[in-house]
Design a protein around this nucleic acid. Structure first.
Length: 472
RNA sequence: GGUCCGUUCGUCUAGGGGUUAGGACGCAUCCCUUUCACGGAUGAAACACGGGUUCGAUUCCCGUACGGACUACCA
């Protein structure tokens, strides 16, 4: 076979794609791009009960938003259950796997028992299988009978406890495992669907995957996966286990339940079941790429902090990957986004803001009528962008933080008209003494906006325009 | 409990047998400015611990501690 680089991202459609998964997808994609390889998407929907409506679309939309493209051929595991069954039966014929008829109650009793005995390894293994109901212990006739009657059964992989095994991980040293610490894992569940362990091996082989780049949570089961490859007499892929993204305090894997309710950190790229993602919060895809690409990755000893997807595609190397898990630092994500908002051209920023205004969910706060009026004028909108560009780290803040115009009392109008008119003509009012400019400006800002601080006051006045200021 | 992985400022990291251990985020102070922000400057802040190996270890080896992952007919 060829030495072509072929990688895949294989999420389960059990919910929204979260940023840990996105990062895994990103590194797979980059590795493929850098090496002129192929990047596949595979939907791992072997657990029918957990598959969620819309999740597959959500995953695809998220990747698309970031600009990650995948091979047209998308594999869905639920479409090919016969394939897995075929290979599992092949293993049974070769005595490398066996049928097991234990009921859930049997297994639960077993677990309790092993726990009580404080057994070193609390597994369905070589020590245990000899006293359970399976095709290794039951008479051949009875097994045949049970199978014919359609009694629920699973297919388990037979682990030889006497051997120890070692496999390579490109990021680490050898991954070592002892047969005695491994379990006779289930390959095919009683509903006929394969487990992850079996399905992904079959599919990765079929797709000719050269490198399995996935999260570190799979490291402990990699010896099992290697053993399955060997049992099937297939070539092993190279493994790369990416360190995990931990919650901000490093207390555990980043997940919804690990976050405090008041953390308000986005976990998704795009909205899912009412929870806003990076996109809805006003992040640019460039910022998210840069942020995720800097979590556990450095392009080299360069001190450059900013890189685009294209930069990464050109330069990506596995040697830049860190071995240590990283904490989710949202402040850094905001900083990247601020940078990319600041570097937008006026046209681009205007376009982004217009998309935002159009897609604004109705349940969000209603905009101030005066602001709304400004937004109907493209030149005014452009001015708003100009005034706010250097002041926000998320797009919607351009609107949310834009100072509102107070309604002036008649008395105030009389008092400030001359000053306002001067400033509208870009001139400091002639009646102001030089040393009181700051004081006057502050006073005027307070009168007009009710705030002590904000964007350039002259700019604000010109944006609002004379008629709005006085006719309200 | 068992198995596996990891440990450089609070966070992301660079580095690597001899360095003033470098950068970035965040934080603080100052400058700029009509204010805030932006920008600029400066500052505080790290090699988990103990043993080896070595002339010398933060860097290599071994332990310990700590952290994380896994331990489902979930992925």
């Amino acid at each position: 076979m060829s030495s072509e680089i072929r990688v895949r991202f294989a999420p389960s459609p059990t919910g929204a794609l979260h940023i840990g998964g996105v990062r895994t997808a990103l590194f797979n994609y980059l590795f493929a791009k850098k090496n002129d390889g192929k990047f596949f998407l595979r939907i791992e929907d072997t657990d029918l009960s957990r598959t969620q409506e819309g999740a597959e679309e959500h995953i695809k939309n998220s990747l698309e938003w970031l600009g990650l493209s995948w091979e047209k051929q998308v594999i869905r595991q639920s479409d090919q259950r016969d394939l897995y069954l075929h290979h599992a039966k092949q293993l049974i014929d070769q005595k490398k796997a066996y049928y097991a008829f234990d009921t859930p109650e049997d297994l639960s009793r077993l677990r309790d028992e092993l726990q009580e005995q404080k057994s070193a390894h609390q597994h369905y293994n070589a020590l245990v299988r000899v006293r359970m109901r399976n095709s290794l212990t039951l008479p051949e006739e009875e097994v045949k009978d049970l199978l014919e009657k359609g009694v629920p059964r699973v297919i388990r992989f037979k682990i030889d406890p006497r051997h120890s095994y070692a496999f390579d991980d490109l990021l680490r040293k050898k991954i070592k495992g002892h047969g005695s610490a491994l379990e006779d894992k289930i390959l095919i569940k009683s509903d006929g669907m394969p487990t992850y362990h079996f399905a992904h091996v079959v599919d990765d082989h079929k797709l000719g995957i050269s490198h399995v780049i996935r999260g570190e949570e799979w490291l402990p089961s990699t010896p099992l996966h290697g053993l399955i490859y060997k049992a099937l007499e297939w070539d092993l892929p190279s493994w790369v286990h990416l360190p995990l993204i931990l919650d901000p305090h490093g207390r555990g894997k980043l997940s919804k339940r690990n976050l405090n309710a008041n953390d308000e950190l986005p976990l998704y790229l795009q909205e899912w079941q009412g929870i806003k993602g990076f996109k809805e919060l006003g992040f640019l895809p460039e910022a998210v790429i840069n942020f995720l690409g800097s979590l556990g990755y450095r392009p080299g000893p360069s001190e450059e902090e900013f890189f685009s997807l294209t930069d990464l595609e050109k330069a990506f190397s596995l040697s830049g990957l860190a071995k240590t898990s990283v904490k989710y630092d949202f402040a850094k994500a905001l900083w990247f986004n601020e940078h990319y908002i600041q570097s937008c051209s006026p046209d681009k920023l205007l376009a982004l803001l217009q998309v935002l205004i159009r897609s604004r969910p109705s349940k969000d706060k209603v905009l101030d009528p005066k602001l709304q009026k400004l937004l109907q004028d493209e030149n005014k909108t452009r001015k708003i962008c100009e005034l706010m560009q250097k002041r926000v780290h998320r797009l919607p803040l351009i609107l949310e933080n834009f100072p509102l115009l107070r309604t002036l009392s008649e008395e105030e109008k009389t008092k400030y008209t001359a000053d306002i008119k001067s400033l509208l003509h870009n001139q400091i009012p002639p009646t102001w003494k030089k040393q009181e400019k700051a004081k006057r400006m502050r006073e005027l800002r307070r009168v007009l906006t009710g705030q002590e601080q904000g964007p350039d006051l002259k700019g604000l006045l010109q944006c609002w325009g004379e008629s709005q200021i006085f006719t309200s």
